[in-house]
Design a protein around this nucleic acid. Sequence first.
DNA 1: TAATGTGAACAAATTCACAGCC
DNA 2: GGCTGTGAATTTGTTCACATTA
Lengths: 215, 215
Amino acid sequence: MRKISDSTIRRLSLYLDQLRALSDRGASLVSSRELAEGSGTTAAKVRKDLSHFGSFGKRGQGYDVEELRESLEKILGVERRWRVAVVGAGKIGTALLGYGDLAARGFEIVAAFDTDPAKTGREVFGVPVYPADELEARLRDERVRIVILTTPPAVAREMADRVAAAGVEGILSFAASRLETEVPLAVRWMDVALELEGLSFLISGGSPGGNGDVA
Amino acid sequence: MRKISDSTIRRLSLYLDQLRALSDRGASLVSSRELAEGSGTTAAKVRKDLSHFGSFGKRGQGYDVEELRESLEKILGVERRWRVAVVGAGKIGTALLGYGDLAARGFEIVAAFDTDPAKTGREVFGVPVYPADELEARLRDERVRIVILTTPPAVAREMADRVAAAGVEGILSFAASRLETEVPLAVRWMDVALELEGLSFLISGGSPGGNGDVA
DNA sequence: TAATGTGAACAAATTCACAGCC
DNA sequence: GGCTGTGAATTTGTTCACATTA
């Protein structure tokens, strides 16, 4: 299998979202055009995206909703549940602990960590908050494979190295700055201010006479 | 000026972050190679990205940190402050109200809204939380140009239409599903579960023998 | 000498268009 | 007739390599 682009993966997530909704509504077939409309893309892109992984549709008909949903879950690796921990129990970190959408989409937050003793030793939205000392031990005990990093930038690098050393395989980082870890692992970044800057550019007329990403 | 790609804009934000840090440290010159290293890209890309907007460097020397920082702030439209509102004062919405990084990067949250009367009529982290009835009036009074949408998906569409009608020019949406507004405006999405699905794909070996986005 | 700015070469992603099947 | 799957064409984005300037 060749290298799959990041854009393709992101779109697969959007298709999956839609298929779950269609499935709930009891729809049985869906066309590439419909999937495209619901995810702001084109029918050709939908078909090309899927074609990297096999052929899932019936010519002349479309795709079987249940079948494609299951296939996409397997492709994305969300046919089973993931055990996730949140490192940094500040405002964003604790907000995520109670965010039901994550569990609904297969990501179960099983632990949180913080260096501040005032925040540890209790449960928040049912998730235990441990002191950072216990990071490595608890991550292993809980078989955590993905960590969401919400610490201040100053400690992000250290925490990333520690979770990587503890066998975590992926990090979703809310820390603005890039981070390089000693052990290589998959990292994605989310940065609210960066997204706002993107909007600022579009609104300010950066690309004049209209803008790229419009709903 | 031709159409600037989204990837270029995102990288400009990363360069700007770095220039601010360099500026704080009193650095006066920086090369495309250094900017590239700090943002996980290549020197050629840095130069090409900047070349779309003019020529900012001195051959043989590099870029003047202050000068380039100011230029990038102008390009991104963050040379002045933006007035932002948060619609939906749930867990994520309120977490954002106290998130100092936004103000530090030029985005001031001046109001929040919610439909739940239990949440309105008070201040959270110094930001007044208004009932949703007052949405249009307050957005105009406060001269809000960007809204961060953190409502449940069920009401996201309606709220998007209402803020668009109230003259808001950009939306950053945490609502998973795409949304189409009657009035067209700039929209960006942030979706924690989608990012986790991307990590899940990489970890599960979606692209075998290594993965794309590694630190 | 060192590093920018930029056309030209290249690679990747998207779109087109149509053969193949339901 | 309708819709998928896919090579080919096109467009977009990246990398190369070098003339140019401090």
